[in-house]
Simulated scan of single mutants.
Amino acid sequence: MNGASALRQKSIDEIREADQNFSIMSEKQGMAKAFTTFAADEVIRMNDGAAPTVGFDSLRAQMSRLPNDGSVLTWQILKADAAQSGDLGYTFGQWMLTNKNDKRKPIYGVYVTVWKRQRNGQWRFVIDGGNTTPEPK
């Protein structure tokens, strides 16, 4: 494996880890904490059926309005890739929204998240979006 290939693979591994940690934080500490921890300053969040949320301050305000109703968002990566340069990549996967306070059926969907390496070396998402789908088979 040459240097560029090794850098790309290292970046893919780091992006997968960041995405997985993002989901774990969402499950354990809530969506608001997870999204504001893993978002870059220049974040854009696509919103199903609404205008996108642009910028970290707007994202923080949006997350502060989430109802505290027992909803839990988790997801699973199906694919990850990164640029040869090692500073940009994406994850794609399936998400599930459940509610620990009632017996409603879970809501399912798919997502894509674009990750960018920050000056300090950490990966933060710059674009995130998804949509609902039927329950996976």
Rank of each mutant, 00 (worst) to 15 (best):
M31T: 10
A83E: 13
V114F: 05
Y108G: 04
T91L: 05
Y90T: 02
D128T: 03
I15A: 00
A40R: 00
G89H: 08
Q84V: 06
D128K: 08
M63D: 06
T37L: 02
A6V: 10
W75G: 05
D69N: 15
D69L: 07
Q20E: 13
T53H: 06
G49H: 09
D69C: 06
F35V: 07
D128C: 09
F22I: 01
K116Y: 01
M1E: 04
M63T: 04
G55L: 09
T53V: 15
D57V: 07
K105Y: 01
L78D: 15
D81K: 11
G30N: 05
P106Q: 05
K137A: 13
R124S: 06
Q122K: 15
N21D: 10
S71Y: 06
R124Y: 04
S64T: 09
K79G: 02
F38H: 13
K10Y: 02
N47G: 03
W115S: 03
V112D: 03
T74L: 03
D48M: 13
V114G: 01
G89A: 08
Q76P: 01
L73F: 15
I24F: 10
I77C: 11
Q62N: 12
L7R: 15
G121H: 09
A40D: 14
R60S: 14
K100Y: 02
I44D: 05
V110T: 13
M1A: 14
A80N: 00
F35P: 00
S85Q: 10
S85F: 04
S71A: 15
W115I: 04
A34V: 03
Y108N: 08
K116W: 02
F125Y: 15
G130M: 08
D102K: 07
K116S: 09
K79L: 07
D19F: 07
D128E: 12
I24S: 09
